[in-house]
Amino acid sequence: MENTETSVTPSVDNYSTTHISGVKFHGQAGEFFSIWIVNLLLSIVTLGIYSAWAKVRTNRYFYSNTEIDGHRFSYLGDPIQILKGRIIGVILFGAYFLASAFSPIAALVIMLLLLAATPFLICLSIRFKMRMTAYRNVRFNFNGSYGEAFVMFIVLPIASIFTLYLIMPWVLKKMDEFIYSNVTFGDKKVQSELKTGEYYIASLGAFFIGVVLFAVAMFAIGGSLAVLTDPEAMAQMSYSLIIMMVVYVLVILLASSFYTARIRNHIFNHSQIEQVASFQSNLTFGQLVWLRLSNFIAMVCTLGFAMPCHGLMCAPHAFMLKLHR
């Protein structure tokens, strides 16, 4: 993680020129673990009701421990509001689940309704997340319209099916553009100029990594199975099933990391908040794979007790801001 190159003097207003700042994260694994485990206990004994308060505390911990240029972020979420949202969520999910369990036909109808509501839900969730985030006592916001979201998240993906997904990378670009260029910080807009070519490179790269690795893995597993054809070795079947699952997770991990690292860098390097800041990100494929892999291994080895550390390790990496003043 990079430290600020400027002094930590909080009063940014004195700067007259552009300067660069990194992201500092102050969270500590031990401290967060004890917060997490106590909140988890409270959530369980209250049958999930306290989970709304736990969520606010978790988010506040991450936001307030993230520092850029001498200032921390703030999370403004209200537990009661989150609890209400969760109750509505339980009712909707329960209704959907029960209806679909009782009738596959009802499930189909509800799925279509849900699909139509997806853009609405995406907008609501991004808006909520942005409005609950503040930096220097200024709130973020999101102004994406439902109509536009409908085009981005429903019409274009369906249209891409008819092009055999050939325009999918462009659709992914349009989605990201929709999300980022509708974010505001106070009265300043985020401007992002994303390039379609970059999305094609990232998508095709991820696709080929996935296909090639999967083919190699299948070939290797198939070869080892062919050797073990006698019936006793068939008992190894379920073990090879486990191996296949692990291979599957690894392939997905590698392919998605390639995409994520590239696109994340591209989005940040081509976005800015007008007159406030531009971003620089140079997260490498290797860094991201290592980050995700070590998280996963830690989680499996500790039977999930390393779970809270996951968030801590995912705190901003290889990220800088150029602040204009």
């Binding site: 995700r292 998280n295 989680m299 968030g311």
Partner: peptide, 9 residues
């Protein structure tokens, strides 16, 4: 609801 806050892997 018990573990959903952490996301990711």
């Amino acid at each position: 609801y018990f573990f959903g806050d952490l996301g990711g892997m």
